[in-house]
Design a protein around this nucleic acid. Sequence first.
DNA 1: AATTCGGGGGC
DNA 2: GCCCCAGAATT
Length: 397
Amino acid sequence: MNAAAVTKRQQTLQRKLLAWYDRNGRDLPWRRSKDPYAVWLSEIMLQQTQVATVMPYYERFVRRFPTVHVLAAARIDAVLKLWAGLGYYSRARNLHKAAAEIVREHDGRFPDSVEALRTLPGIGRYTAAAIASICFGRRAAVVDGNVIRVLTRLFNISDDVRKPATVNRLWGIADSHAPARRCGDYNQAIMELGATVCTPGATARCDICPLQAQCAARKAQTVAELPRKSAKAVVRHETHIVAAICADDRWLIRRRPSDGLWGGLWELPSAQVSGAATVEAVRRLARSLGVPRCTVSTQPFCVSNHQLSHRLIRFTGYRCSLQGTEAADSMNADLRWVTLAQFSKLGISQAMRRIAEALGAGESNDRGTRSISRRQSRHGKPVRSAGTPRAASRRIA
DNA sequence: AATTCGGGGGC
DNA sequence: GCCCCAGAATT
């Protein structure tokens, strides 16, 4: 908030960063205009996600939803479908909500202040400042993972950056250094420096850094140790079962509740179990879906480990064939019967995609035969999800 | 202040 | 394997 006391040193940093950025800034799709919609979308996608990962998703998304009006009018399923695989799906749900809000409350125009932007779902202090500075020329500093690295090194700050108090301190420092003019470029410059030069650990390229003469960590030879982070929480291990319930060539799928993990995405019904994966647990899951009687394969068709940042989930999938013709709860809009091809085109997580592929590999190989078969891909290599024990990689029909 | 949210790039 | 990533919302 305080732009009053701008020191000579701050001006030097601003000038060097901007000059460096003018020469070395990457040509990214969302930098080609100051259209707040494009910038907003990119900033949301880039949350905790690297540029290289975002690129194809961004291109697809703007092609399908070119304006905030188109996005606001879309169904959430269509949005999640294009987001599928990118992770952190609340971003997509909040994006959709915010689009509707912008159209409804702001006549389709983006708010141009940090405070007003901040009220939109999915827009926190970083994203609000990024949009306000880049699109509307506001003087608003940003702090992200890149800026944390650059600032802790520039000022040789060894506080634990996992503590909110440390990050708050960095927000203050960032704010005191943000220039009144070209603040959007300045913000992108310091992030670009963190992404391409002031990189983590020993990969930092201090030799080509425009701020090497000003860097306290370089002088103190602490670059590789900064930023300092306390140990992160240990990953919990969980066991989940998957019920692949089949009637003819259709599978019962369900939409996950909109909050929580993989919220709003479709899945082959799954559930966490406390002990080991069992056929009994699968039967219970099937019953809860309105499938009272079915035959559950004794051998799983797939065991797949899925690593998340804070937990490791082991999915064990079982085939279930329906007895009789009773349908699952037909009044439940979150349940559907679809072919595997249809399923793969819906918004589903990467974890579920792998499970569905294991299921499909077994299908295609089993076509026309009842024999025990080793699942194979088209390339002839055995299909085996990460961590699958060999014994479980074959299915007994 | 601590947890919860995904998935992949790059070493 | 490991660390990290243009963070936000919830508890």
